Simulated scan of single mutants.
Amino acid sequence: MKESTMPPTAYLAATGAALPGEPVGNRELGAALGVSDEWIDVFVGTRTRHFTRDLATGEIRGSLADLCAEAGGAALAESGLEAADIDFLVLATATPDRLLPTTAAEVADRLGLDHLPAYQLQSGCSGALQAVEFGRALLGAGAGAGLVLGGDVTHRHLELKPGASRLPTRELVNYVLFGDGAGAAVLTAEPAGHRVAVRGTVHALTGLGREPGQVVDWYGVGDRHSTRPMLAEDYKAIEEQVPLMAAEALWDLLGLVDWAPEEIAFLLPPQLSRRMTERVMERLPLPGAREVSCVTETGNTGNALPFCQLDRLLGQMGEGDRALALAVESSKWIKAGLALEKV
Rank of each mutant, 00 (worst) to 15 (best):
A204F: 07
A204E: 15
A204N: 08
A204Y: 09
L205C: 14
T206K: 12
G207T: 04
L208Y: 10
L208E: 14
L208W: 08
G209P: 05
G209N: 11
G209T: 13
R210A: 13
R210Q: 14
R210E: 15
R210W: 04
E211K: 15
P212H: 03
P212W: 07
P212Y: 06
G213K: 10
G213Q: 13
Q214W: 03
Q214H: 03
Q214R: 06
V215P: 05
V215I: 15
V216P: 04
V216I: 15
D217L: 11
W218I: 02
Y219A: 13
Y219P: 01
G220Y: 09
V221Y: 05
V221R: 11
V221I: 08
V221Q: 09
G222W: 08
G222H: 12
G222T: 14
G222I: 06
D223C: 06
D223F: 09
R224H: 14
H225E: 15
H225R: 14
S226Q: 08
S226W: 09
S226V: 02
S226K: 08
T227R: 15
R228F: 03
R228P: 06
P229W: 07
P229A: 11
P229E: 07
M230V: 08
M230Y: 05
M230C: 06
M230W: 09
L231N: 05
L231Y: 07
A232D: 07
E233R: 03
E233W: 00
E233D: 02
E233Q: 14
D234R: 00
D234C: 01
Y235C: 00
Y235N: 01
K236R: 14
K236Y: 10
K236D: 14
K236I: 14
A237C: 00
A237N: 02
A237M: 05
E239K: 13
E240G: 07
Q241N: 06
Q241P: 00
V242M: 12
P243Q: 10
P243R: 11
P243G: 06
L244M: 07
L244F: 07
M245H: 11
M245T: 09
M245S: 05
A246P: 13
A246G: 13
A246I: 09
A246N: 13
A247L: 08
A247N: 10
A247W: 03
A247K: 13
E248K: 15
E248V: 15
A249F: 07
A249M: 14
L250I: 12
L250W: 11
L250T: 12
L250P: 06
W251C: 05
W251A: 08
W251I: 06
D252N: 08
D252Q: 15
D252T: 10
L253Y: 09
L253V: 10
L254G: 05
L256E: 13
L256T: 04
L256C: 09
V257H: 08
V257M: 04
V257Y: 04
W259Q: 02
W259N: 02
A260E: 14
E262F: 01
E262S: 05
E262N: 02
E263P: 00
E263C: 01
E263L: 01
E263I: 01
I264F: 01
I264G: 01
F266A: 00
F266S: 00
L267W: 03
L267Y: 02
L267E: 04
L268F: 03
P269E: 09
P269A: 10
P269I: 08
P269R: 10
P269C: 07
P270E: 02
P270K: 00
P270H: 15
L272W: 06
L272T: 13
